[in-house]
């Protein structure tokens, strides 16, 4: 897979009062991710080609991907493929990149969601609704030790657009 062909569709930035190492740990371990990512456990084999999994609280693999770039604690790129039947076949792979930079006493965390083809606004609404909540909760966990409980269902317009493409959604 040539990542040069991928263009970011969503780029979000957040400043967090923490060290780059702590932010890296929060992004790559289940212990942290369960607190800020709706109970999902991140299981990452942190080497290029290693597996990247987000496991739902019921044990199911919600996301299965592969580590594409791994430069701790600065940059992580993974394929972020939601395990809904026919999704990758219809939309192509989704890349998620985290960039971590020191910014004074804080850390600047940038999240990029990239695709190798144009993706409709309806489908992108899922990421647009989800990422700000995930990143804000991540910040809360690192800065205060706990995250507010945010309940968010996938946007109805995204589910409708996926169904129209023949992708099975829960």
């Amino acid at each position: 897979m040539n990542i040069e062909n991928f263009k970011p569709a969503i780029v979000y930035t957040i400043y967090i009062a923490a060290t780059p190492e702590r932010v890296w740990q929060a992004l790559t371990t289940a212990e942290f991710s369960r607190q800020y990512f709706s109970g999902f456990a991140i299981e990452a084999d942190l080497k290029v080609g290693g597996a990247f999994i987000a496991r739902a609280p019921d044990g199911a693999e919600h996301i299965r991907g592969e580590v594409i770039e791994c430069d701790p604690p600065k940059k992580l790129t993974v394929t972020w493929n939601v395990n809904w039947p026919a999704l990758v076949e219809k939309l192509g792979p989704t890349l998620v990149t985290y960039e971590i930079e020191q910014a004074g006493d804080a850390v600047k965390l940038t999240m990029l969601q990239s695709h190798d083809r144009p993706i409709s606004d309806d489908i992108l609404s899922g990421g647009r609704a989800g990422w700000p909540a995930i990143l804000s909760s991540l910040k809360s966990v690192l800065e205060t030790g706990h995250a507010p409980a945010i309940t968010k269902a996938p946007p109805e317009r995204m589910l409708a657009a996926l169904r129209e493409l023949g992708i099975t959604t829960p």
């Binding site: 979000y12 957040i14 804000s136």
Partner: peptide, 8 residues
């Protein structure tokens, strides 16, 4: 890119 995180 529009970054809505602070508004959130």
């Amino acid at each position: 890119y529009l970054n809505p995180v602070p508004i959130h």
